[in-house]
């Protein structure tokens, strides 16, 4: 069987994100460009939708159902800024020097 007849490998999300070129990867400390008031997610929010609509899974729920946020995998799409209707997400663009964010190879 030639390689052109092989089905495309289905990638898990971490594998997909492994293909992304992030900025300032060598820096241990980065300035997050998104701030999340998780106390809102974990008290009054009826849907905690960021934990499933985020295309990079930056918002996760732990075993106790508490929402956590990490900015490292963020691909700057903006989804959470619109999806969160509870006022928990404040969004800025990453600082080119000390922020995270992406450099697309194809785009």
């Amino acid at each position: 069987m030639s390689s052109s007849s092989q089905p495309v490998k289905t990638l898990s999300l971490p594998e997909k994100l492994g293909l992304v070129s992030y900025r300032n990867q060598s820096k241990s400390e980065i300035k997050p460009h998104i701030r999340v008031k998780t106390e809102i997610c974990n008290s009054t929010c009826p849907h905690q939708c960021t934990t499933y609509v985020c295309p990079a899974n930056c918002y996760t729920k732990d075993d106790l159902g508490k929402v956590h946020f990490q900015v490292e995998d963020c691909i700057e799409c903006g989804t959470c800024m619109y999806a969160c209707d509870q006022g928990a997400v404040s969004w800025e663009f990453p600082d080119p020097e000390i922020g995270r964010g992406v450099t697309w190879n194809f785009g």
Partner: peptide
Amino acid sequence: IADMIRGGEVVEYSAHV
């Protein structure tokens, strides 16, 4: 779709609103 993308290799994943 599977027939159209057979043999390919995913090289980037991206998202945008």
